[in-house]
Structure formats: structure tokens, C-alpha cells
């Protein structure tokens, strides 16, 4: 564990609390893509199957895994059941098969071992890299977002961004160890946030509303 990784994970936790806070206080999931949230459930469930195989890493690791699975399912419950009327599927139109197909194929080709768990692990890594696309696509379509939603995205982006210095740090402190699948997918994932962060820094953090140029 290093500081980059710890702050990254805390930022990931924060993003989930921000999202829950947004939904609970506004009693609405307006502006949130349920497709992205469903993809996160799939990401966590397929990646954390090792919870049940006895490959114990640490208490921290297991508690976080359980939290991510539980909270992502709870968010789906809020969006699909409790605040269902505030969920507008007509603007959440990214086609999931464009994400699920290619990531499944990639996982079958590029994995560390052709076993059930390793293929699902690789799939979850590729899937997480692009899971934010329906949300960003929705933002692009509506051209604006509530400030709290942008804080949610910023926290997620910080989490991803900080994993990169974490890997660089680990490379030098752990004798040249790298995880090429996680690193390549992680860099792609972080790159997807670049446009968002440009608007976040130049508008939201200056006290303006998040609005994309027409």
C-alpha cells in the first residue's frame, strides 16, 4: 500500500458516497446513467470472485470489495425501484453491446491465464475502463450536469488518475513488477476523463454550472 493507492481508493469510496448523497437528498437519479451503474455491478462481481476462493489479501482489501459490491447493488435498487420515476431511459441511450462485446472478446484473448477466474478478472478490468462511457455519453447529449454529479465524476476520475503514479511507485519499489493488463486499461480509462476534467476545472471549480459548449 502506498499513498497514491490509498488516496485513490478513498476517492473511489468518496465518489460512491457523493452519488448516494445526490440521489438521497434530491430524491432523484436524474442525470445518472443506470447503464454505467449496472456495468459497475458487473465489474465488481466479476472481479471480486476471489473473495470466495480463499485468495485472501488483507482485511482492508476484503472489506473494500464487499463495500463496492454492496453499494453498487444498492445504487441499482435506488435507481430501479425507489426512485424509478426519476430515471429517464430516453437520454441513457448508449448501446451496452458496444461495450460488452469487445471487452468480452479482449478478455478471452488477453488474460494472464485461460481459467474462468482469470478471464473474468481481465473482463472486469477492460469493462471498468469503459464503463463510464454511457454516463459521459449522457452528459454529452444533455450538455449540462448538476454540480453534485460533476463532483461524483471528478472523484471517480481522481481515483483512476492516482492509480497511475501508484503503478510507477510500485514499479520502482517492487523490483520492476508491472501488471500490463491493469496498466494499459487504466491509462485508457483515465484518458476518457480528460475532456470532463477540462470543463470541471474551467467551469465548476470557478463556481459556474457544468455546461458544454453548444
Amino acid at each position: 500500500m502506498n499513498l497514491f493507492r490509498l488516496v485513490a481508493d478513498l476517492s473511489h469510496l468518496a465518489s460512491i458516497f457523493i452519488l448516494l448523497h445526490k440521489i438521497q437528498t434530491t430524491r432523484s437519479c436524474r442525470g445518472i446513467s443506470i447503464k454505467t451503474q449496472l456495468l459497475y455491478v458487473l465489474v465488481f462481481v466479476t472481479r471480486y470472485l476471489d473473495l470466495f476462493t480463499g485468495d485472501f489479501v488483507s482485511i482492508y482489501n476484503s472489506v473494500m470489495k464487499l463495500f463496492f459490491i454492496g453499494s453498487s447493488c444498492y445504487i441499482i435498487y435506488l435507481m430501479r425501484i425507489k426512485y424509478k420515476p426519476t430515471n429517464d431511459p430516453s437520454i441513457d441511450t448508449f448501446r451496452l453491446e458496444y461495450i460488452l462485446g469487445p471487452t468480452a472478446v479482449l478478455a478471452l484473448i488477453f488474460n494472464y491465464k485461460f481459467t474462468f477466474l482469470e478471464v473474468l478478472w481481465a473482463f472486469s478490468i477492460y469493462l471498468e475502463a469503459v464503463a463510464i462511457l454511457p454516463q459521459l455519453f449522457m452528459l454529452q447529449r444533455t450538455g449540462e450536469a448538476e454540480t453534485i454529479t460533476t463532483h461524483y465524476l471528478a472523484a471517480l476520475g481522481i481515483y483512476r488518475g492516482l492509480y497511475i503514479p501508484n503503478w510507477i511507485y510500485r514499479y520502482f519499489t517492487e523490483g520492476g513488477a508491472i501488471d500490463p493488463i491493469a496498466v494499459v486499461a487504466g491509462i485508457v480509462q483515465t484518458a476518457l476523463y480528460v475532456d470532463f476534467f477540462y470543463v470541471y476545472f474551467t467551469k465548476v471549480l470557478q463556481g459556474q454550472k457544468f455546461e458544454l459548449p453548444a
Binding site: D9, D50, F68, W121, G175, G176
Partner: peptide, 10 residues
């Protein structure tokens, strides 16, 4: 030498 790959990240 590259270390054995392990999934210790979240």
C-alpha cells in the same frame, strides 16, 4: 525478473 502476477488491487 517479473514478479508473479497477483490481484492485490481493487
Amino acid at each position: 525478473k517479473q514478479k508473479e502476477h497477483e490481484h492485490d488491487e481493487l
